[in-house]
Structures are given as structure tokens and as C-alpha cells.
Design a protein around this nucleic acid. Sequence first.
RNA 1: GCCCGGAUGGCGAAAUCGGCAGACGCAGCGGACUUAAAAUCCGCAGGCCGCAAGGCCGUGGGGGUUCAAGUCCCCCUCCGGGCACCA
Length: 847
Amino acid sequence: MSDASNYPENAPRPDSARPDPPRYTPAEIEPRWQEKWAANPALYRAEPAGTAKPKYYVLEMLPYPSGQLHMGHVRNYSIGDALARYMWMQGYNVLHPMGWDAFGLPAENAALKNNTPPREWTLKNIVAMKRQMQRLGLAYDWANEVTTCLPDYYRWNQWFFLRMYERGLVYRKQSKVNWCNLCATVLANEQVVDGCCWRHEDTLVEQRNLEQWFYRITAYADELLEGLDKLEGWPEKVRTMQRNWIGRSEGTEVDFTLAGDASEKIRVFTTRVDTIFGATSVQLAPEHALVAKLSANNPALKAEVEGLLEQQKQAREAGDIGAIEKHGVPTGAFAVNPYSGEQVPIWVANYILADYGTGAIMSVPGHDERDFEFATKYGLEIRRVIAQADPAAEEPALPFCNEDGVLVNSGEFDGLSCTAAEKKLQEIAAAGSFGEAKVTFRLKDWGVSRQRYWGTPIPMINCPVDGLVPVPDEQLPVLLPEQIAITQQGGSPLSRVPEFLNTTCPRCGGAATRETDTMDTFVDSSWYFYRYTDAKNDKAPFDPAVAQYWFPIDQYIGGVEHAILHLIYSRFFTKMMRDLGLITNAEPATRLFTQGMVIKDGAKMSKSKGNVVSPDDMVTRYGADSTRMYALFAAPPDRDLDWQEDGVAGISRFLARVWRLVTRFAQVARTAEPGGTVGPVAEGLLRKLHQTIAKMTQDFGGRWHFNTSIAAIMELVNELTAAEASLGSGEVPASVVRELLTSLTLLLAPFAPFLSAELWAELGETSEILRAPWPVSNPELARENEIEIPVQVNGKLRSVVKVHAEADRATIEAAALADGKVQEWLGGKAPLKTIIVPGKLVNLVVK
RNA sequence: GCCCGGAUGGCGAAAUCGGCAGACGCAGCGGACUUAAAAUCCGCAGGCCGCAAGGCCGUGGGGGUUCAAGUCCCCCUCCGGGCACCA
């Protein structure tokens, strides 16, 4: 493991004539501790439930094992590791696990390219990345490592699938799906970004019709939405994104009937049923069932509808449906308004979506922006049916979309408020069986089928006699065959593996075939953090009692890019698992932290831009401690971080100063006798120390602005270095030197684990610093005696006076007025107004 | 279009409750040590004027509140992110 020759900047110079003074050599220190820690994995192991310590579950999002950590990972894990180490030092029973999101397409692509089986490629990458993590000194409990591509994990994906199937939370249907040609598979709605594949930003997603498996996430739509209000430990941004994604909308469904055929109903969804007397047309999505009927004997109409559909499809694929130019065609048919009996024309329009609401709307141009635009374009009637509640007010121009008006031109409903009218119209519709109040969601069920090889096989069997038959639990796991030829052919690769495909029906024993699609890999990451609590369990996904102890996660840390994908699926799984009786918590994590991106030269690091900084390279040159600490120092963790290598060098210099300081006086500290006279220098240093402890403790508990925590340690070290002469001379008693140096080392421990472990031993400590108690700030020692108070004249800083920290107003005022510079600026005049903020400032106002 | 962030020295940033703007670090400049360099240490360092003492200006722009505004209020610009015919 030791590779000192790779650290050129710190390597001893063989050509030196004089012996060099000892130096800080991470190249020597870090591998030594790595080996020590690797030999003692129990160090990072959580204690079982039942310990007297309070529990703390800190979790970082697990990586995809690409083979290389990137700086985003380093930042994410440095934050989590600092927190975990701090909580250990605060006496908590900490669970800090790590694992691998190991299924997924890159393994198949690599297999094609290098002729390496996906499993082999993936496991090799895991070994490499785990080594990188250990090199960084990340304190993970590897005893509960989770690797999602191994059967002992994915069998539980299958087990959950079967439990959900039993409860009607899994179903299969033919549906229009998002298809990425490069992935050669289906994508979930959440995986389509701007009309393109989330993995291939330049590849447009196509719409295809396929038979797919779905998870009924919509069964939890309301709970997923309501739960967000209680997730106060989650960033508001993430909660807003999820709210938008769920897209709950309260409204009314109403049946119009086809003029001339009252049995043909056209159900529309509207959030403004109060405006229904202003409906001057009904608009259908091009794929609406009635459109096919109306155009069956009308080739011209059919062709025009085809055109509209094509426009819609293109706009959707371009991800720019908002910019589509509205087009429509009249069908020639009419619909009957159930409230007024009025007949309005039925149109087909390209801006009506078949998969939202009922795929049909009533068009109210007077009170809806879009309908207004459309009606204006095609000369349809625009009618006012809502007026200002205040009769004296001037009537606003149409379209008037406020909901605080009253109904007009609406027959017997005239004069009702919008809200009252909505309620009444809903009641009438329900009583007449032609409509009802209805809640619609934007959230769709989660399509989990993937036509890929490297994923969890879906545990279903298709029997010519019995139809779809679930694989019985005792036959789990349905193993993924390992020796298969990866080709570029489309379709599910498993369908070309006869040993896998052909099986017997569990019900009738006859010949049958297996489902050959695999599961979306987001299934794997939806519940992995439960498995961490009991990763070796081969009877159940985990022991509910153990999960009960650890859950919910106290702090989850990861990138904001997972705000709606992983984080909504995880919440869904948690609710589903709760309903299975496995857990009692309704949400996976109490607190969520989303760290900013790591950028370089103002741009996201990417191979194509050639601005990628390799963590290994940084560690080789500056050491893991410097790399980690820079990741925390360069910016607050929630903001984007611009990686500047000079900054890493700066941290490295700082750590070298700490190393020199502590090693220089370690002997004094080690042999210190208690007591000694604390003079002004020692008092000053102790004050700074205890102020620093207070600040850091506050930072860990609250804002997590580790950049300022580290700056505070630097200030402390600056003061200690400036007082070096006093540390050695005995002016500062050895007992105080000891307190200063041990506390400094402890404060550094969450950020620079290698150096602090080294210095801890250097100071004669034999315990593990990870379990040493976090220092406690003594307010008596931290208090300032004398402070400087700025004095302003007319709001401008003119002088500074020194007063006792607790000086009262009168004392401060007297000191300010006695100051020579202040007197000059007052010019002999008495202040008209005197503002004194004790401990803060004085402002004297003169004319 | 709507909803969130953000804009502070040459650069990354700090100012946590309206109270000394620029802590801490990077880069830079000057000095010490050295034959020389590296490393290290000491010092300077927002802009403008000034030999200096000192003064004036300064937190994206414009207005306002206040004894006092980076911080609060109103309007605007730019950058980043999310959502967007969702009826």
C-alpha cells in the first residue's frame, strides 16, 4: 500500500547536504494508518440495538461502480465522513455504511467493448473504488456492504415484487412508453429529461407501445404529497420539486354527450366547472377514442388528426411542448352541455394530452389563457361568465382567470361565487350521474420493465395454460444467467437464453417461459439503506426489529439531481414496506442534505471538456487529508465548489504547520504535570481555543458551514504558532500546552483523520481518537475581558475604544466621548442623539 | 411565463439576530534565511487621492426605511437550477 515515491512534492531530497528537518509526509503517515484501520474493521462497526448510546444513522448516496471515484463523490463522502466521525466523538452509536448501485447499462456497454462479462467488470470496479475509499480514510462499516447486482440482494427485489403483486401494486399493461435507442430500452417518465434520455443527453426519446410492468406508485400519490409538509429536515427546493412532480389537481369530471347520440359520452376534466356556461367548444386529444369513431368515415379528418398527432409527438420528443403552436380541426360533430343543453362544436387539438385527465376538455376562452388563444385563432365564441365580485369595479379584460368572482350568463347560477358554484355544480352532476368531483395527478405509475440483461430478473412465468404465474418464494432468487453473449441486438437479451427462458409452470408443471425483462435499477436503490442494517440476512430483506432501531435515517446526504427520481421512489418503497408490516416509519430519512456540484473553471467536470480532476491524483500529490479538507474548505457544502489545485496545496501547507507545531511540543505535552500558573499568554490561547471549540460545535449542530469551521481552526493555529516561543519557554504551563495541542488534534479529527490519528499517538494517547470525547467549550475560559467598540460619528467609523466586555452604557458612552478622534469629529458640539449597543458599537449623531 | 437559488477584492469566500465589509485561504508584492533555489518565517495587500497623517468611494443597478443596510422593503439586470399548453 505504501507508495511514497508517488508523492514528489513531499519526498525527501536525496541530494541534500544537510539533514532536513522532519517534515509532514502524508505519503508515509496515511498508508500506515490505512493498514492499521483495515486490520481493525470493528472500529467503524455500529453496536447492536440495546446499547445505552443514542443511535445516529448517517448515509451518503451509494455510487454506481464505474471504476473511478470522481470529485463529486469525494465531496459527498467527505461531508458524511466528517459528520459520522463527529457523532462518534459525541458518543453516538453511529451507523455509517456503504455499498454499490451495481446493476445498469454501463456494464453491458463495457462488455461489448472489452469482451468482459458485466459481472466481472462490475466486481473489478468495486474493488478499485473500495480501495480509493479506503485510501481517502472514509470510516465505513464494510460488514454491511451491499452490492445490488449479487443474488443475495436482488432476490429481495424479486421478493418485494411478489409482495406488491399480491397486493395489486404491480400490474402489467400495454402502454405508450419512452424508448431510448442508445439504451435499447424503456425509460420511466422520471428518466426523461427535456425529451432526451437521462443518460444520453443528446438522444431523443421515442414513444413506443409495449407491454410493461408497472409499480402502482399512484396508490400513494396523496400520502407522498402530504408527507412532504412534514419533512422539515429536507430542503424546500426538493420538496417543491416533488410537489410539482406529483402535480395534484382538484377539479370535476363532467360528461358532455354527443349531439344526436346521447349514449355517447365525452367525459372532460376541469378545475373550473364554475365556468362551464362559458364553454364554447369541446377539445379532444388526437388519440381520444371518440376521434377514431368520428373520423372513421372521414379520410380528410383522419389525415388532419394524424398531422396534429405528429406535431404533438414531435413537440413532446423535443421536450418543448410548451412552445408548440396550437392547432386544431373541427370534427363537424357537436357536444351537449349537460347543464345548459347547449350544443358546442367538437374539435381535435394538438395541445390536448391523451394521458392527462380524460384526454378531453371543455374550452372556456373567456376564462382560460390557452382556450382564449385557441378561440382567437379559430374565431370561436368568447363569452364572459365570471364577473368581478364588486359590482362597482370595472370589468377586466378577457381572459379573466381569477377565481374570486361571481357567475354571470350562467342561468340559475348567476350571482353565486366561484367556489359556491363549483360545489353546487358538482352536487348536481353527482345527483344526475353525469359527473363528480375528482382529483387528478400528474404522477404516473412507475414503469419498471427494462429490455436489458444486467438487472434483476422479474420473477414471473408465462404459462400457456395458467397465464401469468408468479415465481413461488421458495424458488427465489430467479438467477441471472452469467455466461451470456452480449450483443447489440434489440429486445431483451434474456429472451435469447433458452436455459433461462424455458422453465416449468409452478401451477400446472407444464412447459412455460420466464419473463425476460429486468427491473429498472432505481428499484435497487429504493430500499438499499434498509438492507444496510442487516445485510447478511438470508431469511428476509432485513430484520424488522433491527430496522426499527435504526430508522429513520438521521441524515441522508447526496446530490440534488436525485430529487425526483431516487428520492420519490425511496419514499414510495418506504410506505409500501410499512404497509407490508416490515417497518413503522413512514419516511426513509428525517433530514436530507443536498451538496453542491464540483466544478472546474466555471464548468461541470466532464471528459468532453477535459477538466476532470482525478481524486487519486490529488491524494497522490497532497494526501487524502488535504484533498478531503479542501473539499470542505473551498465553499459551504450546499453551494457549488470550484476546484482549484492551488487551494489544495494551501491546505496541505496548513496541515504541515499543524504537524510541525504539535510534533515540536509533543514532548512538553506528554510529560506535562497538572497545574502551573496561567499567565496572560496562556489565558489568551485558552480563550481562543475555547471560542474555536464553541464555534465548531455550533457549526456541526447547525449550518454545516465547514469552510468557516476550518477557517476557525486556522485562526487558532495562527495564534498558537505566533506564541511558539511561549509554549517552549514554560511561560505557558505544560498542562496548558497539553490541553491546547490535544484539543486542536481533536478538532481536526473529523476533517483530517490520518493526521489527527498520527498526532494523537504522538501526544502519547493510546486510545482511538475516533472514540475520544469531543472537547467541551468552557464559557468562562472563552469569555473576552476587554473588547474594542467601534465608535461612529454620524454613522461613519471614526475611532475604536477599549472597554471591559461587560461595560454598561454609561461607561461606554464616557469612553467614547473621551476619545480624542471622536472629540475632533464632534467639533465641540454635543451629540443630538447617542446610540449605544453594549458589546457592539456607539453611534453619535450631531448636526 | 412561473417557482427556487445566486451576484461581495485579482480568485475561492466570511460577516449566524440591522451594528467595524472583506475573517480564513489562494494568487501577488516586499523582506529574512540560503552561494542559489525549494521549503520555512516576517510583513504588505478593496479602489481612488496623498510623501504621510488622513480623507473620499465601495457588497450587480435604481429607489426607500433606519442613528446605522451586504443584511429589511419596492423596482430592475444578469447567472445557475427546477417546472411549464397538466385543462
